[in-house]
């Protein structure tokens, strides 16, 4: 299961607005380069809609950060996502299907219409500056041997508790909670990218992948990859 799908499941259980819109205009003050890191995170969602709290999902995934590239990958290595910041400030976004050696592109042409705006700071750290500033600093702690700020507050009607690593500009944990569910993101492992055993897929390798514009899906109904992608989850439910 890929991270984006995981998040969609989170949405489907009623956690619809668990973040603020990612507006490009907030990028301006986030241009100082962030450290190159390799992280492993775990995510857990619990539903309160049932009489007893029910664990809906637990998943682990990888996160790599370079000054102009963010890449994620599922624990099983099947799926990932990549954002690249180009020299002129555009952000290229692709979904990666490693088993099929295929990348699905979301073209800049269709991004404004689709309201796809990227905040590089938020992509790099999973929370926007606005969100962080909304949360009140409670105390300073130590997590994984690093300084961490415990921050709490409410965003869009959800209680938010964040352990923020100010030196790394990354969360050690994010807990979002409302009446229906609880989502927890926890940092398991963080190392400098240069010494990390698990590396992101190289850009050269990705450039050899087959590339499909998401706008073309409607005309690719007979394509084996698109067929598989579109029916993969459609046949699950009851």
């Amino acid at each position: 299961m890929k991270i984006s799908d995981f998040l969609k499941i989170v949405m489907a259980v009623g956690f619809i607005t668990f973040s603020l819109p990612v507006f490009a205009d907030t990028v301006s003050d986030s241009d100082q380069p962030l450290s190159e890191v390799a992280c492993r995170y775990e995510m857990k969602v619990t539903s309160f809609s049932t009489p007893k709290p029910k664990a809906l999902f637990t998943t682990a995934w990888f996160f790599w950060r370079k000054p102009n590239m963010i890449q994620t990958q599922d624990a099983d290595g099947d799926h990932g996502e990549i954002w690249e910041r180009t020299a002129n400030g555009s952000i290229q976004y692709r979904k990666l299907y490693h088993i099929d050696k295929t990348a699905v592109e979301y073209m800049p042409t269709d991004m404004p219409a689709n309201n796809m705006k990227f905040d590089w700071f938020k992509l790099s750290g999973m929370l926007s500056k606005e969100e962080l500033n909304t949360l009140k600093l409670i105390k300073i702690k130590s997590v994984l041997g690093r300084n961490a700020e415990l921050r709490k507050g409410n965003i869009n009607g959800q209680a938010l508790e964040v352990l923020w690593l100010p030196n790394e500009n990354l969360p050690a944990s994010i807990i979002r909670k409302d009446k229906k569910s609880r989502m927890e993101l926890r940092l398991i492992d963080i190392t400098p990218l240069s010494v990390s055993a698990k590396k992101p897929v190289a850009l050269e390798e990705i450039s050899d992948y087959r590339h499909i514009d998401a706008a073309d899906f409607g005309d690719m109904e007979n394509d084996p990859f698109v067929k598989k992608l579109m029916s993969a989850e459609g046949h699950h439910h009851h």
Partner: peptide, 9 residues
């Protein structure tokens, strides 16, 4: 609004 951290909409 962007749904989640991951990919924007």
């Amino acid at each position: 609004a962007t749904a989640g951290w991951a990919s924007g909409s």
